[in-house]
Amino acid sequence: MDLGISGKVALVTGGSAGIGLAAAKSLAREGCDVCVSARDPEKLADAVVELQEFGKVVHAVLADVEDPAAARRLAEETRDVLGPVDILVANAGGPPAGRFDAVGLEDWEVAVERNLLGTVRLIHAVLPEMRSRGWGRIVTVSSRSARESLDNLALSNAMRPAVAGVVRTLAREVGRDGVRINNVLPGPIETDRLRELSGGEEALRRRGESVPVGRIGRPEEVGDVVAFLASERASFVNGVSLLVDGGESRVIA
């Protein structure tokens, strides 16, 4: 299926590993020129090498979305090198794990900056040009915790629904301008964060056995969903928070 986004410019944050890198690869495979950003220079350099295999223009920017100035700089540098951002994939690592009484106010501040304000700033940085051109796609990468409270993830349980609220609000405000915004909610995906939260390979294997499809998900399975939501084929999909969790969530609505 031709997704109709060849030649578009995509900006992917948290793009050096895991779901972010998988999303960048899926977009590059569909013909997008891609700018990836991340905090680790070595991982970012490795990601560029992998992405260049798709034969598209790849640019990398060392940045931390917790920095209030990062979003504007990312949008401007992408525009200078590749052109205005057509597709934004707002992806950041999850906030620290822990129960409510185990996380301090400084942890809350980190979560707000990284997982809520970081996303909001990125959208602010690219949305005006998308609206003026009459075409844009924004995909936020969140978590299943946007739909149901998960144990030992107090910060995520608060931040992820907030992002979902931003997505739903904007979908109604900018849909007539040709901009579509959607939210992806990964479940158990084989990433460094899941390994950390699970507590080892054996625990990870048992976790996979509990998923209805019988295994842990792969980052590329989320990346392909991101690419679809960013595409012309999903032009009537707007404002959704889409679970990609192998059927693990018990939420009906």
Rank of each mutant, 00 (worst) to 15 (best):
G18E: 11
L21S: 13
A22V: 13
A24L: 09
K25C: 10
E30W: 00
S37P: 10
R39V: 13
D40V: 01
E42L: 04
V49D: 14
V49Q: 13
L51R: 05
Q52P: 05
E53K: 14
V57F: 04
A63F: 05
A63S: 15
D67A: 14
D67T: 04
A69V: 09
A75M: 06
A75N: 06
D80N: 15
D80P: 01
L82C: 06
P84Q: 07
D86L: 03
I87H: 06
L88P: 08
L88F: 04
G94Q: 15
P96H: 09
G98F: 00
F100K: 01
A111N: 11
R114C: 06
R114G: 02
R114F: 00
N115D: 14
L117I: 12
V120Y: 15
M130S: 12
R131E: 14
R133W: 01
W135K: 07
V139H: 08
V141S: 11
S142A: 04
L153K: 03
L153D: 03
L155H: 04
P161T: 05
V163Y: 11
A171M: 11
R172E: 15
R172S: 15
V174T: 09
R176Q: 14
P186S: 07
I189E: 06
E190M: 12
E196M: 11
G199W: 03
R215K: 13
R215D: 13
G217T: 07
P219N: 12
G223T: 03
G223A: 10
V225A: 13
V225K: 03
F228S: 05
F228W: 10
F228A: 03
L229N: 05
L229S: 07
A234D: 02
G239F: 05
L243V: 00
